[in-house]
């Protein structure tokens, strides 16, 4: 059984006041997320990430398709007791203290009243809010609110945790802490599904990722598998400060540092660049392949999506 199974989930909104016209927010989406996996859902702003998460949480109703979490339907309360959700830029009841907020959410999730206090204290400790537990949330910084958000998502020991942009608004320290928290969740055997547009986080954390753009799934798989198909780049270093015209026109980045010049160009321009260096009698020092990153893959998919949109 998959932890999350999405079968053709799609969403079309009606926009306009008098003459309503359909706007597709999500094309039929098919995804299967394994138990215990950290799955990254990547895409630029407005790609359809939050719409997908909202449909999975039962906040927005799909126009078509279906999905199951832990083998249960999306409106099944038994399933909802076993999942945790952190919305994007969370906002909580600011008249409550962190402790009161978590007690309230624990009660709604059906946490045993005898265990509630110890669960709340443990999770506050885990997210580093123990000292601020009796402070009203209206006095919290953005980073502290994000931590409170993560605390409410994991308080009831869910099997599957959904995090919508969990790193947004956090400073580098905070991001590192959230990363290690997500790793801890995986060690505890939980499935983590998180959306982000911060690719380095996804690259560092995820077992698999899916890239979505303009409401369409562009690719899904392990980061290494996805990036292996991307045409790489090469770094060429030569002596001297002159830059041959063929390298200039390739559109790569060039940096002159003292007596050497460094250029990063695409693999396909490599031979032409080396020939140009020979012709200009510039001494070649090194040619090093640059490994394709998730960012390269991501950007390639976005370009592809944009080209397809133009041809349509």
């Amino acid at each position: 059984m998959h932890a999350i199974e999405i079968l053709g989930l799609e969403k079309t909104y009606s926009i306009g006041f008098w003459r309503k016209r359909p706007k597709r927010a999500l094309h039929p989406l098919h995804l299967a997320i394994e138990d215990g996996e950290i799955f990254g859902f990547l895409g630029p702003n407005g790609a359809g990430k939050t719409t997908t998460l909202k449909m999975l949480m039962g906040l927005v109703f799909p126009s078509g398709g279906s999905a199951r979490i832990l083998g249960m339907e999306l409106d099944d309360p038994r399933m909802k007791a076993q999942i945790g959700f952190l919305p994007e830029q969370p906002y909580f009841y600011d008249y409550l203290t962190a402790r009161e907020l978590l007690r309230y959410y624990g009660q709604l999730s059906g946490v045993d009243s005898r265990q509630l206090s110890s669960s709340v204290n443990a999770v506050l400790e885990k997210v580093g809010l123990r000292d601020a537990m009796n402070v009203q949330l209206r006095k919290f910084s953005k980073g502290m609110l994000q931590r409170a958000g993560i605390a409410q998502a994991i308080l009831h020991d869910p099997k599957v945790v959904f995090l919508d942009e969990p790193m947004s608004g956090l400073d580098p320290m905070g991001r590192r802490e959230v990363r290690s928290l997500i790793e801890e969740l995986k060690e505890e055997g939980k499935t983590v599904f998180f959306s982000t547009h911060i690719l380095s986080d996804a690259e560092a954390l995820c077992d698999r990722v899916a890239v979505i753009n303009l409401g369409q799934l562009r690719g899904v798989g392990a980061v290494a598998d996805l990036t292996s198909g991307v045409k790489g780049k090469v770094e060429i270093v030569w002596q001297g400060s002159a830059v041959p015209a063929a390298i200039k026109s390739s559109g790569g980045e060039t940096h002159v540092a003292g007596e050497t010049t460094r250029a990063v160009i695409s693999e396909q321009d490599q031979d032409a660049a080396i020939d140009a260096l020979r012709r200009d009698r510039l001494r070649l020092i090194s040619v090093t392949p640059v490994r394709a990153s998730l960012e390269d893959y991501f950007m390639a998919q976005l370009r592809l999506g944009a080209e397809e949109a133009v041809t349509r």
Binding site: R78, P87, L108, S109
Partner: peptide
């Protein structure tokens, strides 16, 4: 509007 509802309705609350 404040999205406080999201963390309530994603729990077993009808």
């Amino acid at each position: 509007e404040k999205r406080t509802l999201y963390t309530v309705l994603s729990r077993p609350v009808r």
